[in-house]
Design a protein around this nucleic acid. Structure first.
Lengths: 233, 233
DNA sequence: CGTGCTATTATGCGGTCGCATAATAAGCGG
DNA sequence: CCGCTTATTATGCGACCGCATAATAGCACG
């Protein structure tokens, strides 16, 4: 019909496995972002990808493996979007953190559809070791990114030394909380407000306004440095 | 069997509708906390309540109405557990906030089962106007509680005046983010750390360490006061 | 132009889902 | 002790679920 009336066009295209896997991952993310948990279905995902249902069990060991792959893909993309521009500014830690915040609260990161998808992953984490492993990997990368940015700030002159780990926990929680609230109710406040709250938090940290986060030995010590060793909690 | 061999005990007990409704709500919360989304099923909930499936459709208009009622019930209970002891301390705003934080990060509030349940509600909010309304009510109550506590702090002598609304947004986000992280991975840090991070945040706020939150007119003005009018954003 | 490999589709099975319907029986007022 | 109200159960229906199986067909290669 589309090509010609005499030559029947092929009913489907054979794709290399990697390309098909990627397409299925994209379809999974699209389906989850549209429908939330309702979208987590072999039939819906395959329909979204324009292929038949059986392809999922052909290219993945099951729906769980596909979801884990989709989780990993989305996490990596979101992380890179805020980390890469921030880590590029090596000279000015405060500006780098501001870039990190701005990217984290950019409109594309605040899309409620992304939050819907994320909720599905969160809800699956307690039941699936595979999902839990993905989350741990993503969490570790976020930790090293944030601790790198904070440690650069700490070694700046005039900055009151602070405990790196707990500071990262607090800042990470503040960002997550702002992101959750904005995703659940985009009208509750402006994304710029979220950025300024994070900027303020970092400034207060640098000024030593958080007593419980102050490092004991003010000058040297460097109680903890970001590390890649597996001992990170 | 239990009572006597001759007198057959009744096959079921007739309960007044309100009592049965409450029992079904409890069973819903129990089922959700055990199984997450998997627990959101007429059959599972009714089995948990020890009644037959049809009772849910008899006492509620459908599964959605039951879930909304369960959401409201859990939200009210959690809110009261932290609000009531905190609002009781009228004289010392900092201590009252500390009590609020401590109650919010008490072991019973950090039960991962509660988080599983909460995730189900969050994931349903975008699809159900009824759930959205419940969330808005709960959010409003949390807002007035936090703004009451913060406004008491603000009128304390020596406290740098701050914008009430944005401050509440930041503190609320910090608490939510800490709660999410602790619920997803209870081993990531100690609940006491969460409390101290919140305490520190409030102290920094009182010390004027958050530039973007400082009120323009330092002495009077009282830019905003907690209100019950429907204009609250 | 075959021919084989395998990506892809089509179909079927056992299970669970929410809900509607009809039958049942508990418990109370007479 | 009886009958009425209605809370409660039992059952059935259509739809969707994940997955296994077998048939189909694209397409690279000889």
């Amino acid at each position: 019909m589309r090509r010609s009336d005499t030559a029947t066009q092929p009913k489907f295209r054979r794709e290399p496995p990697d390309s098909r896997r990627e397409a299925l991952i994209s379809a999974t993310l699209a389906s989850l972002s549209e429908l939330g948990h309702e979208g987590l279905s072999v039939r819906r995902i395959s329909a979204h990808a324009g292929v038949s249902m059986g392809l999922i069990n052909h290219h993945f060991s099951g729906i769980d493996a596909l979801v884990a792959a989709a989780y990993e893909s989305l996490a990596a993309r979101l992380l890179a979007r805020s980390r890469d521009p921030a880590l590029a500014l090596v000279g000015e830690p405060l500006a780098a953190l501001h870039v990190y915040f701005s990217a984290s609260f950019a409109p594309q990161a605040l899309d409620p559809a992304i939050f819907r998808t994320w909720l599905v992953f969160w809800s699956l984490v307690p039941h699936s070791p595979e999902l839990r492993a993905v989350r741990e990997r993503a969490g570790r990368e976020t930790r090293v990114t944030l601790e790198t940015l904070l440690s650069r700030l700490r070694r700046q002159p005039g900055v009151c030394p602070f405990k790196l780990g707990p500071a990262r926990i607090g800042l990470s929680a503040l960002m997550d909380g702002l992101w959750v609230e904005l995703s659940l109710d985009p009208a509750s406040f402006e994304p710029a407000r979220a950025v300024s709250l994070c900027d303020d938090w970092v400034r207060a940290l640098a000024a030593g306004a958080f007593p419980a986060l102050r490092a004991r030995a003010p000058g040297l010590s460097g109680s903890r440095t970001p590390r890649t060793s597996p001992a990170a909690s």
